[in-house]
Amino acid sequence: MTALPTDYLYPPPGGWTLADVRALPEKCRVEVLDGALIVNPSPLPIHQRIMRRLAAALEPALTPEWQLEVDVDVLLAEEPLDYVAPDVVVFAAEVPLTTRPIPAAAVLLAVEVVSKGSRREDRGSKPLAYAEAGVRHYWRLESQASGALAPVMHTYVLDTSTGAYAETGAHHGRFSSTVIGPVDIDLTALTR
């Protein structure tokens, strides 16, 4: 991770903007929620493994209108700025891979792999921001409360009448879905 220059230690008046984020060095791992900058450390190897294996399990199921990438920038809102990098993003196939950030309107699914430092954002402010931006599906993969390595997939769908997510399940062991195409994943294999 590249260190932020010292003039970025304090928020600009009025909060961070898209122009401010674009001015940062490309290797800075940052997100912005409600105009507030969040600096992210490099993920632990276990987080990377889970993310990589989950993406590999999901990608073959994609229907032709969708594509999948990991850790790409997504613009949810400009005022106040919500600029995030979900662990896995499924978005419209017509969006060029040279696009940064991916517009929220093109995103079907955002997936977060919860780590110790991202619990509050992944359980609270990020799903709120995804819902407000109209992202139709949000999945959160996290370890069980007991600390066991077998993750649990929490799935949500946007309720258009309320503008909030409705939980559709907490999946232990195996996870099946048809949101992006037929998916059946052994969740325990993601950590092995």
Rank of each mutant, 00 (worst) to 15 (best):
P60T: 06
T160F: 04
P182K: 13
E65P: 06
V72E: 09
E59T: 13
G35L: 08
L97W: 13
E59R: 06
H171L: 00
A166E: 11
V179E: 03
Y8I: 13
G181E: 00
T17Q: 08
G147Y: 09
Q67E: 04
N40M: 13
F175R: 00
W139H: 02
E65I: 04
R174Y: 00
A36E: 14
G14N: 09
D73W: 08
T63L: 14
P182A: 13
T17W: 03
P127D: 04
A129I: 10
V89A: 10
E31P: 05
E31Q: 09
P12S: 09
Y130F: 04
G134F: 04
A55D: 02
P64W: 12
D82S: 13
V95L: 11
E112C: 01
D87S: 15
E69V: 14
A129Q: 05
R53Y: 12
V114S: 04
L18F: 14
T168N: 02
P101I: 08
P25D: 07
I185G: 06
V152F: 00
H137R: 04
V89S: 13
A92I: 05
Y165H: 06
E79C: 14
S143F: 11
L4Q: 05
A164R: 13
R29E: 07
P103R: 14
L190D: 08
L81D: 09
I180A: 06
E112K: 02
V32C: 10
A85P: 10
I102K: 04
V114H: 05
E59P: 05
F175L: 01
D184T: 03
S176Q: 07
I102D: 11
T2M: 03
G35M: 10
A129F: 05
E65H: 14
E112S: 08
L187E: 00
L24W: 08
Y10H: 13
I180K: 00
L109I: 07
A104M: 06
S176I: 01
L54Q: 07
V30F: 15
